[in-house]
Design a protein around this nucleic acid. Structure first.
Lengths: 138, 138
DNA sequence: TTCGATGCAAATAGTTTGCATTCTA
DNA sequence: TAGAATGCAAACTATTTGCATCGAA
């Protein structure tokens, strides 16, 4: 909130509520899920306000969003950034430590001068359960 | 077309046209771009028919689509599959050889039992030109 | 008392679907 | 001529925007 005020923003009740929801459950939420949570307390909050506040909070570095395949973007606290592995079949999501991507990051940087951001878009695939080879694992 | 017929499908003029467009320029196209190309010859073709045909062709293994970040999906011939590196800033796309991902694929398989598909969703980042470090390269 | 924040509705992009009609096999 | 394919419009999901109003500083 201090950060908001410092940047010329205003500490409205909706913002307070949204931040509370984000801190209460630090996992991933869609804008819609957050709206529902906020609306449970103040049911006059519109989804556009949620989007506008999420945008503002992201600009201030408080939250980040990631695209986990098809469907809505997921928002979470910026303090807890990581990549994602998402199963295209069942939707299961694994938080992937950044070091998993260091190899790829380096070779892509070398070969293409490209600096990849493994956090903004998930890496899709099949989880052990849904993979065609999963039979060998039981 | 033979494949279509073999699977109980019918060889309509629109399908012929769509396939021609796909083979003529084997790069990436959005459904909308394909529709425009097809409509240049037969302007009564609707976008839904394009989507339905692309879906069918994908089911038969003739085309595949990939998500290159925000925006519309890109369709291309299945004979030419590869991953993609996409610049989040300027949108530039690099076709990434599959071998680039073998390291990541293997470690993810080991650590999470996850078999990743680097082709369906692009890997996002910044190209050399748009990267904050690009100054050192000129 | 100004100017940022909000609610609401409508616009947007990309894609899918319902339904009556058309055309291939 | 049966049933697949199509055109059109409308629905749909996720997100953004215009605008009048409200409220924090």
């Amino acid at each position: 909130m201090t950060l908001l005020r410092e940047n010329g923003g205003r500490a409205t009740s909706t913002r307070r509520l949204l931040l509370t929801c984000l801190f209460e459950d630090a996992s991933h939420h869609t804008a819609d899920q957050l709206a529902t949570k906020v609306q449970a307390i103040n049911h006059d909050v519109s989804i556009s306000t949620i989007y506008r506040n999420l945008y503002e909070l992201e600009r201030l570095g408080v939250v980040v969003h990631a695209h986990l395949g098809h469907g809505a973007a997921m928002y979470h606290l910026a303090s807890d950034t990581h990549g994602h592995l998402v199963c295209e079949e069942c939707g299961m999501t694994v938080e992937a430590p950044d070091k998993l991507f260091t190899g790829l990051t380096e070779s892509v940087a070398h070969e293409f001068g490209f600096s990849i951001d493994p956090r903004h878009f998930a890496v899709l695939g099949r989880c052990a359960r849904c993979s065609p080879n999963s039979v060998i694992h039981g």
